[in-house]
Every structure is written in C-alpha cells, then in structure tokens.
C-alpha cells in the first residue's frame, strides 16, 4: 500500500494547466475527517485513468483530476476549502 501512491507534488504540473497559482502549496481541509494540510501531502494515485488524491488521515478522496484530449475535469468535493497564499 505504501508504494502504490505518489505524493501530492505529482499534481503540480497537471494543476498548473488550470490554475496560475501553485495549488500544491495551498492548504486543504478534508471534507471527510477535517484534517488540514498542504495539497502536496495528499496521497496521489494515477496518473491513469486520472489523478485521485486521498487524505493521508482517512484515505477518502479529496481531489480528482482527469485530463482528456481537449478538456480537464476537476472534482474538489472532498475538500472543504483550499487556502491559497497570495502576495500582499
């Protein structure tokens, strides 16, 4: 089980196609267990058929990202929020 997944940094490139900020540096909160932590700390399965990022505390799905030939689908239902640091 420990060797099956990647860490959340694997999402940096795919998410950079969608957002101009580094989402892996954002702090997310798991909708299932409430654990907070950087997106980079999620356990990531993929890349195919898609990226599935799971909470390191409860293993529930926090984020899913599927890249098709001309579109991407992003599901963040498993995240209560993302805190994105911005320049003052």
């Amino acid at each position: 089980m420990t060797t099956e997944h990647l860490d959340g940094n694997a999402l940096a490139g795919p998410l950079a196609e969608i957002f101009s900020v580094d989402v892996t540096a954002a702090t997310g909160r798991c909708a299932s267990c409430g654990l907070s932590g950087p997106v980079a700390s999620l356990r990531v399965y993929g890349p195919a058929p898609g990226f599935v990022a799971r909470c390191p505390g409860c293993d529930e799905v926090v984020l899913r990202l599927v890249r098709g030939p001309d579109a991407a689908w992003l599901d963040l239902r498993g995240a209560v929020s993302l805190r994105v640091a911005l320049p003052e």
């Binding site: 058929p49 898609g50 899913r64 599927v66 098709g68 030939p69 991407a72 599901d75």
Partner: peptide, 20 residues
C-alpha cells in the same frame, strides 16, 4: 466514480466512448 469525473457514461470501446 469515473463517470462523474469526465469519463463516458457508457464506455463502448468499439465506438471509442472514452470521455464525456
């Protein structure tokens, strides 16, 4: 699971139904 994340609802390989 995948049908709510961009993959085709039916998925017939002979009609190449990969994505929505």
């Amino acid at each position: 699971f995948w049908e709510t994340a961009g993959y085709h609802n039916y998925g017939d390989p002979w009609r190449e139904q990969r994505y929505q």
